[in-house]
Simulated assay, not measured.
Amino acid sequence: MAAVGTLNDEALKRKERLKAMRDKRAVSKTNDDVSEETEESKEKERLPKPSFRSYKPGSEKLKDLSMDTIKPSDVTDIIKDQIDAGKTEHVVSEVDLNNLAPRKPDWDLKRDVSKKLEKLERRTQRAIAELIRERLKASQDDLAYVVMGAGVEREMEDDD
């Protein structure tokens, strides 16, 4: 039985705690309502007042907040100065046709390949000279004799 008595006591304590929580919540709600009202009034005070530039309000309260109409300034003088500054007095007497003519479609390829072609040209010249030397060695002729013989043959052809 002792256990039942303690359960009843605990139930009563629980009911009291719940009642205290409800009362506390009710008090905080009333405080929140009051604080919400004060916050709303503070917000209204903090909000900026509207200023109407191009809108003409209908109510009398807002007419005081409208701004005076501003007339646009005259910009014709500024525009005339800019137009005069844009006119050039010098006339181009000669036109360089190379600058006006469009480039060939492969000009950039030729530009990029030109360095490689220079190397290949040197190698080609060396290879041709090497082939000539090999032919001369193969024919077992003296280089001076061949050169002189070619010179003599040319003279004979010139005489004819």
Results as ranks from 00 to 15, higher is better:
K49T: 11
E121V: 01
E155T: 07
I70G: 00
P102Q: 04
W107K: 03
T88I: 07
R22Q: 03
K87G: 06
K119H: 04
M21Q: 15
L136R: 15
G58R: 15
E134I: 10
G151K: 12
G5Y: 14
S73P: 04
K15Q: 14
D84G: 13
I79P: 03
F52I: 01
L117R: 05
L136P: 04
V34Q: 09
L62N: 15
K63S: 09
K49G: 12
S66K: 09
R133T: 08
L18C: 05
R135A: 09
A3G: 09
E37K: 13
E121T: 00
V27D: 13
I83N: 07
T88Q: 10
E155I: 08
A144W: 12
D84E: 14
G151W: 10
I132H: 10
R22Y: 02
I79S: 10
M156L: 11
D68Y: 07
S93G: 07
F52D: 05
V4T: 15
D64Q: 04
D84V: 10
Q140A: 12
R122P: 02
P105D: 15
R22A: 06
D81T: 01
E157L: 12
K61D: 11
D81A: 04
K71I: 07
V152R: 14
K61T: 08
D160E: 14
A150Y: 12
S51T: 07
E60R: 12
R154N: 11
E134H: 11
A2L: 15
A85P: 00
K63E: 06
M67W: 01
D141P: 00
A129L: 05
L18K: 09
D74G: 08
D108R: 03
D32N: 02
D23M: 00
K110V: 02
Y55S: 01
A85V: 01
A3M: 13
S139E: 11
E121S: 02
S139A: 14
D9V: 13
V147P: 01
S93Q: 14
K110P: 00
A85M: 00
E121G: 01
R135Y: 10
F52V: 01
P50D: 03
I78V: 14
E153S: 14
A129R: 06
A20I: 00
A129N: 09
K29Y: 10
L65Y: 14
I79Q: 15
K104H: 14
R154D: 09
E16W: 05
P57T: 05
E153Q: 15
K119I: 06
Q140W: 07
M148I: 11
D112Y: 01
K56V: 08
E155M: 11
V92L: 06
T30R: 15
V146N: 04
N8P: 06
L47I: 02
L12N: 12
E16C: 04
K44T: 03
K110C: 01
I83E: 10
P105V: 13
E40S: 04
D96N: 13
K61I: 06
M21R: 15
V92D: 07
D160F: 15
V34N: 11
